[in-house]
Each structure stands twice: as C-alpha cells, then as structure tokens.
C-alpha cells in the first residue's frame, strides 16, 4: 500500500469502520466481520456485479447498489441487512431457483453448493414464483469435466477464471436474456476444445453443480475453495 492512499471513515450497519479509499463496501464489510451474501463475486477474480445478492442501502441514494463494485466514500452510511434488502435477496434467490432445473437431491454438489447454502442464509423455504423448467443440455463430451446447464446460475466465475487466471479463455457466454449459456470455444462441444488446458479451475470456482468432475455422484463433488485464494497469493508473492 502506497502512502498516498487515503483512509475513509464510514458506517456499516451502525458500526464506524475505516477503509482505504480504493476498497469496496464488500471488502470493508468482510474485514470487519459483517457478512454480505454473494454469488458471482470471488476474491481473485474481477468484479462482475451481476448476481445482485450483495446489494446494500446507502443513505441518500435511492437505488440499491452492489457492495462488490461500490467503492467507499467518506461519511457513507451503509445498511446491509434491512428487512427490505432481506426480502429482495430472498426474491432474487427464488428467481434463481425458478430459472433452471436445480434439483438438489440428485446433484453431485449436494451439500457443497453455494446456491443451496444461500437458501439457508437468506431464509428461503420455498419458491413462490412459477418454476420455468427449461429444457437444457448437459455437455459431457470432455474426458474430465461435465458442464450441466440445468444447474448454471450464469455468475461467469468460470468464464473469468479461465480468462483472467488460466489465460485460456475457453469459456464464454453466448446469447442474451433468459437464453444465455456458458459455452466452450465457439460453442463447440467441450471435448473438442483445442484451447482448454484441462486445468479444472472452472470446476472449482463454480458455486453450483453446473461444473463438476466426471464420475462424481450425488453429494461427492466438493469444491476446492482454497484453490483460487492460494493461486492469487502465490502470484502476489511472485510479483
């Protein structure tokens, strides 16, 4: 940290906290043990701002802002867990569950899934929006990994880790709206990919069972959550 970085003071959930001026609200909250739920954010990857779970209220701003991409300001008054926000987070999560075919009981990541544990975190007991039941494919052409679109929440962690950390950019997104899909290369089967290095980082940053290792059965696919923090740390040490 250079000496020119300024320190800002702000209030998060009625607590006075100090922060570097370049920090996001999410970073500062975590440093201070204030938990804000996230799905697309992952330390070591660029911020995305798409999952909307980390929205917070900022006094004087009518809009809810994503704490992962909002930098701190002097005197900011942030509320992370008002009833209003809690209600929206629950609705958002219900929308996620209604979007695709998330059947926890027969999922390889059952017990290790961030979407599943998020339901507990935001106190979602059921989905009151209609389920959409889209007909989706599973790409099982790769010899080591499986991409199951039924369980994808389009957080793009896999796309970002493949591009930013591995440097392969095998994964990307196609189409838009409800039709968006994670693709490999130019929408060719993963097994035919010439760019995939088989590193498996995408599998381990995937919050759900959308990316799993081949051969893993129900509840067997735990993810190595420390992989990315470790890689980031080693990179920083190297630099």
């Amino acid at each position: 940290m250079s000496s020119s970085v300024k320190i800002k003071t702000l209030t998060i959930d009625e607590r006075q906290v100090g922060a570097r001026e370049d920090q996001t609200i999410l970073d500062v909250a975590r440093e201070n043990g204030i938990k804000i739920p996230t799905l697309c954010s992952l330390k070591g990857l660029s911020a995305y701002g798409g999952c909307r779970m980390c929205i917070v209220e900022i006094a004087g701003t009518p809009k809810l802002l994503p704490s992962c991409m909002t930098t701190v300001e002097e005197g900011m008054v942030v509320t992370t867990n008002s009833d209003r926000i809690k209600k929206y987070r629950r609705s958002l999560l219900e929308l996620y569950f209604s979007e695709r075919n998330h059947v926890c009981s027969v999922c390889a990541t059952n017990g290790y899934c961030e979407l599943q544990s998020m339901a507990q975190e935001v106190e979602m007991t059921h989905v009151h929006f209609p389920y959409m039941y889209p007909q989706l494919d599973i790409d099982a052409t790769h010899e080591r990994f499986i991409l199951d679109h039924n369980r994808c929440i389009s957080c793009t962690r896999c796309v970002r880790v493949c591009d930013e950390i591995e440097g392969a950019h095998t994964l990307d997104i196609k189409d838009r709206g409800i039709d968006i899909r994670v693709i490999t290369d130019l929408d060719h089967p993963w097994g035919e990919s010439e760019t995939c290095t088989q590193c498996g980082k995408c599998v381990h940053v995937c919050p759900t069972g959308a990316l799993i290792e081949r051969g893993k059965s129900v509840g067997e696919m735990s993810k190595r959550k420390q992989l990315l923090p470790y890689l980031t740390k080693m990179r920083e040490a190297h630099e």
């Binding site: 569950f97 009981s105 389920y131 039941y133 007909q135 989706l136």
Partner: peptide
C-alpha cells in the same frame, strides 16, 4: 405441512417437466 422437497419444490418428480 409440505413435507420434504417433493412437496415443497416438486424435486425429482419435476425432472420430467422439461419433457
């Protein structure tokens, strides 16, 4: 009481809903 995932989410029986 909706008792278990099938009653709450339609769970495994709903896997036919795509077809």
């Amino acid at each position: 009481i909706a008792f278990g995932d099938c009653a709450v989410t339609a769970n495994v029986p709903s896997m036919r809903n795509q077809f």
